[in-house]
């Protein structure tokens, strides 16, 4: 039985297989509409989420399966003090696979240690969000045809941004990927990711606070939101939340085939006027998320 807790639980070949499957589902959705008939997905969302939960639910429905679960901890027994381990043990009896989001880092791993069915980490605090990473990789694959030799700009909250951490881990395994880390000094990528991942990348990485100075060299610009819920201190949040706002004029110096990505939801870090630019890929990204989650559910349920 396999779980997906961190993107590194999947090797490069497995990720490619998921991408090929997702691509095929997009082309032939009818061929997959009964693949998970009779199977149940439990969505245990201890923290509010819209797109990730709906994406999982849509994915399971489009595979012909069923969905049960809760969308905030107030409607679960967690409010009565039940442990993650106990919740998962019980839900394992009712569902064939579990997607879990939890505000505490490591909660899905605790779930996996106590589950008899596969667990998918749908986001654990500021730590990991591997299905967002699969979504991002699938989007890059569709837009760029592969991952080697890309210059990838990551912009915004690189400290608490779990999507950024997972994406770095995933892309660092490909050839000659150069990372450009764009953030205010308070929101830089944590040292352990630099020392244990980025320092080992053949193409290396650069850190800057100035988005415009690096814009012309980017193949991918991955924007992130500064999230209120990651801060203990409201003052720090207010001070940093508008650090980077992408507007149409700022894209003047960008490559014509730049791919602008964002895990969504955005607040104001990408101006709405950018949406109509062909380089804006973030809504396509949201669509891709459903298909890659369909491929993942099939893989973990060992459905052929």
């Amino acid at each position: 039985m396999r779980n997906l807790i961190s993107i590194t639980d999947l090797d490069v070949r497995e990720i490619e297989q998921l991408i090929y499957t997702a691509d095929d589902i997009m082309k032939n959705p009818a061929a997959y509409s009964e693949k998970c008939r009779g199977k149940k997905l439990a969505t245990l969302f201890f923290e509010p989420s819209t797109r990730t939960r709906l994406s999982f639910e849509a994915a399971m429905y489009e595979l012909g399966g069923h969905v049960l679960g809760f969308s905030e901890s107030n409607s679960s027994s967690a409010t009565k003090g039940e442990s993650v381990a106990d919740t998962v043990k019980v839900v394992s009896y009712y569902a064939d696979i579990i997607a879990m989001r939890h505000p505490k880092e490591g909660a899905p791993l605790v779930g996996a240690m106590n589950s008899t069915v596969p667990i998918i980490n749908a986001g654990d605090g500021g730590h990991n969000h591997p299905t967002q990473t699969l979504t991002d990789l699938f989007t890059i694959y569709r837009e760029k045809g592969g991952f080697d030799n890309l210059t990838v700009g990551l912009c915004g909250d690189l400290k608490f941004g779990r999507t950024v951490h997972s994406l770095i881990l995933a892309l660092a395994r490909y050839k000659n990927v150069k990372f450009v880390l764009i953030s205010p000094s308070e929101l830089k990528v944590p040292d352990y990711i630099k020392h244990e991942v980025l320092d080992k990348c053949e193409a290396g990485y650069v850190e800057t606070a100035d988005l415009m100075s690096v814009m012309p060299e980017l193949d991918i610009l991955y924007m992130t939101r500064v999230q209120r819920e990651r801060f203990f201190n409201e003052t720090d949040y207010v001070r940093l939340k508008d650090s980077y706002v992408l507007t149409l004029p700022k894209l003047d110096t960008a490559k014509k085939d730049l791919c602008v990505m964002h895990p969504l939801p955005r607040v104001n870090e990408i101006s709405v006027e950018v949406d109509k630019d062909p380089r804006a890929c973030y809504f396509k990204q949201a669509e891709n998320g459903k298909y890659i989650r369909m491929a993942l559910i099939m893989k973990l349920l060992e459905v052929k």
Binding site: S83, V84, A85, H102, P103, K104, E105, G106, A107, L109, V110, D124, G125, G126, H127
Partner: peptide, 13 residues
């Protein structure tokens, strides 16, 4: 020591 870690709230882990 991470206050955001699941071990901070579920102390029997």
């Amino acid at each position: 020591q991470n206050p955001r870690c699941i071990t901070a709230t579920e102390q029997e882990l």
